[in-house]
């Protein structure tokens, strides 16, 4: 069997595929963060908590209302998105004129409170959430066993990412959005309701996080701390891609998933740090990030 650095080619393919799957989560989450930062200039530290809420809402729908996975995939992002809209109206909208730091502190504080409330109610061991029956089982590929659900995760996240990108780059609404990012005062002068645009954008970014949360519920432990661990990595992804760059966040999300996957084969101990090492290197060479524009 052909090998690369002592690792069989086949094993390597498997690991690359797994990396791509993890990259899917990074991509959706960093996409939401990038949209929010691009338009609102808010560093949304509540993103991890909102991802966790997506998973919990899916669990609640199943256990309290009997709604299964597919309903949750549709409804949980809407529910959590509405929660995001309320947050934006009540609290975040008051901070637009202030320094970034205030937004960061507010959203970080909110994340701690939300996580604490869920922890108090549901404990830390996590809640069970089964893979939907349509997607259970798997395919025996020549180089690995691929659970159907993991394949679905890649497809779903690619579709969502590409659709979001198309809306922002190719539609009129997207044009308003991009214009408001460039110069909100001017756009408002043309009669566009910019505050509403900001609120809806935040709601959409939050809904993306919740969508990722529902996707994650069947494979990861649904527990109040699930967002706290992943959010730091996702921030690194956004920084590497370039703060506020939509395409950058999608591409770096998937790419870093792949790189992390490779690290897990060659030097597993470093797999939790490799993304941060890359972040340092990118910041040294290109401070605005790979896809970012220098201000």
């Amino acid at each position: 069997m052909p090998t690369i650095f002592g690792v069989p080619m086949q094993a390597l393919f498997g690991q690359l595929l797994l990396g791509l799957i993890n990259g899917s989560f990074y991509a959706i989450l960093s996409l939401g963060l990038a949209i929010i930062f691009g338009l609102l200039n808010i560093i949304n530290f509540t993103h991890g908590a909102q991802y966790m809420m997506g998973a919990f809402v899916a669990w609640m729908m199943l256990n309290y209302a009997g709604l299964g996975y597919w309903w949750a995939l549709l409804l949980a992002p809407i529910v959590v998105g509405i929660f995001g809209v309320i947050l934006e109206r009540l609290l975040i909208s008051r901070l637009y004129k202030l320094d970034h730091l205030y937004g960061l502190l507010l959203t970080f504080g909110l994340a701690l409170i939300i996580q604490g409330l869920f922890r108090n109610e549901y404990g830390v061991s996590g809640l069970p959430y089964a893979i939907p029956s349509e997607l259970s089982g798997g395919q025996r590929l020549p180089f690995m066993f691929l659970p159907n659900y993991r394949g679905w995760v890649v497809v779903a996240s690619l579709v969502v990412c590409i659709a979001t990108w198309l809306v922002i780059e190719k539609t009129k609404l997207g044009a308003y959005l991009r214009a408001a990012t460039e110069n909100p005062t001017l756009v408002q002068a043309f009669g566009v309701n910019v505050p509403l645009l900001l609120t809806l954008t935040y709601g959409f970014g939050v809904a993306l996080a919740a969508f990722a949360g529902v996707l994650a519920a069947p494979v990861y432990s649904v527990n109040p701390n699930m967002g706290a661990d992943i959010i730091i990595v996702v921030f690194a992804v956004v920084v590497i891609g370039g703060m506020g760059s939509i395409l950058g966040s999608i591409v770096t999300g998937f790419t870093l998933g792949l790189i992390e996957g490779l690290t897990k084969v060659f030097y597993p101990e470093a797999s939790s740090t490799v993304i941060f090492v890359i972040m340092v290197l990118v910041l040294l060479v290109k401070p605005a990030g790979l896809f970012g524009r220098t201000a």
């Binding site: 069989p8 094993a11 498997g14 690991q15 797994l18 990396g19 799957i21 993890n22 690995m144 066993f145 993991r150 494979v219 990861y220 432990s221 699930m226 661990d229 992943i230 996957g261 897990k264 084969v265 597993p268 101990e269 797999s271 939790s272 740090t273």
Partner: peptide
């Protein structure tokens, strides 16, 4: 044996190595 970072959310890669 494989040393996994603490904490780890995704074990699929390590499980694949164990499987292999």
């Amino acid at each position: 044996a494989v040393k996994t970072p603490f904490p780890t959310a995704d074990f699929s890669s390590f499980l694949l190595q164990a499987q292999g």
